[in-house]
Nucleic acid binder design. Structure first.
Lengths: 158, 158
DNA sequence: TATTGTTATACTCTATAACTATA
DNA sequence: TATAGTTATAGAGTATAACAATA
């Protein structure tokens, strides 16, 4: 039994929950949106067994082949210590290759393998589709640009 | 030695790193912005020993006193199993109180203690300051509203 | 049977310190 | 001395399963 007669309920109209104390906070909505977008990304990329961080690493190696580990890691805000396992995984899957540069034998130059390159084509296509969906939800590319501008204003200074 | 004479460098103009493959992705910028805003929140609230999740829990209890644990947890997207330790911490600090409702002895009704209430005043003031800073960075309340609207468009459907 | 809170557990992310090999 | 990569480790955050008490 959920409630008595409409006339004499103990729980009147089930007093609504008031979440404005958090829902009106920019940072809170930013986080909720980010979580949902990442969950969607993971669902869409599950068949490729690719998480956002792995995709971003592959994408940066693709456009900056031969980069040192630390260059990719720092661009993504990943500590070099945590980057090792990430690259190990991608290398074990045959997607990424560490090469020894002759001029600096401390560092590892990163490249996509041919398998990595062909997978990257599919990943980029899937990402483009996802991005198009996001843009459609926003209302168009003008709104996308607006959002990106607002996000950069939020982060630019400091 | 960083480089040879300007005329015959091995590393020409230090070929710029191209991060457009990720920086032009909505989800990526969303995440970077969220991380930075949360880091700023943590810095600003460090003196109160309050993390974003703890603040959000206290804020929802304040505006919905007597709520069950599961109501607060679900509103914030926290699993009830993980919510236990969170409330334990706040209760141990004397900020939150679990009370036994007579009508449903399975549940715990949550309330702020008087200490919790007076701390909440300071927290809300600090949060209002932080929010004002964010709004100023965005360019004003119109831009804040725009951002919130765009974020909700991104998440509304599905 | 279903719900609420709880415990235990595991997995991912993230952060720090210390080591190695090279520069 | 400093840098690049690595290892080990510890702390959050998050996810699932199972249990006790109660509805």
């Amino acid at each position: 039994m959920e409630q008595a007669s409409p006339a004499l309920r103990t729980k009147p109209t089930r007093q609504r929950f008031d979440d404005r104390a958090v829902s009106e906070i920019i940072g809170y909505q930013l986080r909720r949106a980010q979580i949902q977008i990442f969950q969607e990304f993971m669902a869409r990329f599950a068949s490729f067994d690719m998480r956002p961080s792995e995709y971003s690493v592959m994408a940066l190696i693709a456009s900056n082949p031969g980069s040192k580990q630390i260059a990719i890691a720092e661009a993504l805000g990943i500590k070099r210590a945590n980057f090792v396992a990430l690259i190990n995984t991608l290398e074990a899957r045959g997607l990424v290759e560490r090469r020894q540069p002759a001029n600096d034998r401390r560092s590892h130059a990163l490249f996509l393998t041919s398998i990595g390159i062909s997978l990257m084509e599919k990943l980029d296509a899937a990402q483009a589709e996802f991005e198009a969906d996001c843009i459609a939800r926003l209302g168009g590319t003008a709104e996308r640009d607006q959002l990106m501008e607002l996000l950069s204003r939020l982060t630019d200074q400091r």
